[in-house]
Write a protein that binds this DNA or RNA. Structure first.
Lengths: 339, 339
DNA sequence: CTGTTAGCGCCTTCAC
DNA sequence: GTGAAGGCGCTAACAG
């Protein structure tokens, strides 16, 4: 794998390496003709500036790191596709790392990225959110960071979020409007803004309809199928299955459905269920799952744009938060046939 | 983001930079004491060797590229997790790229990786497989490559494959043993070894039971939900729905189920279905989907091991093919209640 | 065992 | 507009 270097090109054209270098970096004065000549010869020789050497001198890697909690559910992969779409076009490499919902791993990921001189990082926090301080310290040093989806209010950075409050309220309202008054919310970890907002929406929907609601209606669980499954198993032991569930996301809802069906509950006639952040498979399970549609891919695109903004302006930037909106997708799982 | 360099450490300890370098690279002679002293001081100063500079001199990046057709289905993400598990431990960065089942993108991905001096590449071919020659040329140049899952027999490289033939045969046999004689195989693109092997297994299962089988029973389709869906729609128009389907993978099977249910077919009583490469959601759809369980994560681990082998031995290596085995997971979708 | 000296491939100031 | 020279941070002979 012997590569042709800038020297080879210079020698072949009988000019200096700095001239060749200039041809590849618009910003310098160079005669258009010589420039053409060099570019042509270079491409014929198969010359490509060595990105690594370039990075060394420029002190810029054109690598951006993306850290996600997991990518087994299609949500994060889809966001990543959005990120890649815009970043690859701008000549950036996207390094994907997953924290596995584990703070230590998340910390390691971030460190690896920083030590490898990623130019910036796009991250969705792991459930536990114990790295807030570390992340803040990076931000303080001027390291470009953008948060998406899973955020934390104390962090002063650019963020791309979903209007969780609004759509949690709508989703809950949808259940209430069908006469379901006894609803339980399978919520996400409370460290995350996302969880809080969805809880808030859940609560305020009750307020709006003057329905009682307290902490017993809110069960903190995780974002995975098994978390939903386990939460239901516990409720069944305590004989506290309500008429309806509003779940923090689709996997949790699917886990809940699995457990409920296992114990003979009928959905939606016995228990109505609605999820959040529509998953492709949510339409294929039985019964088809109602959910909130989130503009997943767009979330990635916007996150990438926000990062580019920071990357391009070498100065300090005022963090901005972009809030995306969605829509309700009502399917069988939440529609009481009787009412 | 000012980083401390090897010089800073050398100056602080009043020694030469090469001594510091040695302390960080075991392979040289250095007095244990000085080494300790340096390492200690370095960590106190927050010194970390600059990976980029290191890459420049070593002509080795410790980056390996992974190219997959997509990562919306959980299969590839899970393989990637396996790959990362072993590679990250060895100090490698894993660059994930997706070809989107598109050969041009795949080619671009490969080029980007090669130009960025990835030390090696692990790849699962896109459906069309038009880059065989390009990949072969990389291999000929001595570039370390490992193929997994989606391969092509003409490529002379290390591969990690699944025993597609055997399990396709077993899956088909499972249907036959229930008295289902009219089976259609929704197959993958024929360029891929995987597709051919599964077709072969499908055919041989018929031979084994002396059942007729011809090309009309094999429909070339894709690997996505929509491909299965569309294939069924066409069959319905032609009124050629058989008693059973053996699908090239779970997404295709799910698409088929969706289309069949839409048109009023009952599964499994009207049509029995079995998929391939168990997907987590396959147990959650209605009816739960029978499938072939593949050791997904392990596939990634083995692929990484094979690559490491090539990376570590600077000489030429004899390509080796590892074939993994699986198991049948029978659920409702393929069990004829009547028989 | 340790210091000196070349580079790795490129960018960038400084002369001309 | 172009060439020479220094340097990015580190590794790798080569001496001693």
């Amino acid at each position: 794998m012997k590569h042709v270097t800038i020297k080879d090109v210079a020698r072949a054209l009988n000019c200096s390496i700095s001239t060749v270098s200039r041809a590849f970096n618009d910003k310098y004065d160079i005669h258009p003709d010589t420039r053409e000549r060099i570019l042509k010869a270079a491409s014929e020789m198969g010359y490509q500036p060595n990105p690594i050497a370039r990075k060394l001198t420029q002190q810029r890697t054109y690598n951006v790191g993306v850290v996600v909690p997991e990518f087994l559910n299609p949500f994060f992969p889809e966001v990543i596709m959005g990120i890649q779409d815009v970043l690859l076009k701008k000549g950036y490499q996207v390094l994907i790392m997953q924290s596995n919902e584990n703070d230590d791993t998340e910390r390691e990921n971030l460190k690896t990225l920083v030590e490898n001189f990623a130019d910036g990082i796009i991250i969705s926090l792991s459930q536990e959110s114990k790295n807030i301080d570390y992340i803040q310290s990076l931000i303080d040093k001027g390291f470009p960071i953008v948060l998406f989806n899973r955020s934390n209010e104390s962090l002063n950075v650019s963020k791309v979020l979903f209007d969780d409050y609004k759509w949690a309220l709508f989703a809950t309202e949808h259940l209430i409007q069908q006469g379901i008054t006894n609803i339980i919310h399978l919520a996400g970890k409370n460290h995350l803004t996302l969880s809080k907002k969805r809880i808030q929406g859940f609560v305020d929907a009750h307020r709006k309809y003057k329905l009682p609601v307290d902490n017993s209606k809110i069960i903190e669980t995780g974002f995975l199928v098994k978390n939903g499954f386990e939460a239901i198993e516990k409720l069944i032991i305590k004989k506290q299955i309500p008429q309806g569930f509003f779940c923090v996301n689709d996997p949790t809802a699917m886990g809940a459905i699995k457990a409920l069906k296992k114990h003979g509950f009928r959905i939606p006639s016995d228990v109505a269920i609605i999820g959040f952040t529509q998953t492709p498979t949510s339409s294929m399970i039985s019964p088809p799952l109602s959910s909130v549609i989130q503009p997943t891919r767009q979330m990635g695109e916007v996150a990438a744009e926000l990062l580019l903004k920071q990357l391009d302006s070498s100065g300090l930037i005022v963090p901005e938060t972009v809030v995306l909106s969605g829509s309700l997708k009502i399917r069988e799982s939440s529609v009481k046939l009787s009412s």
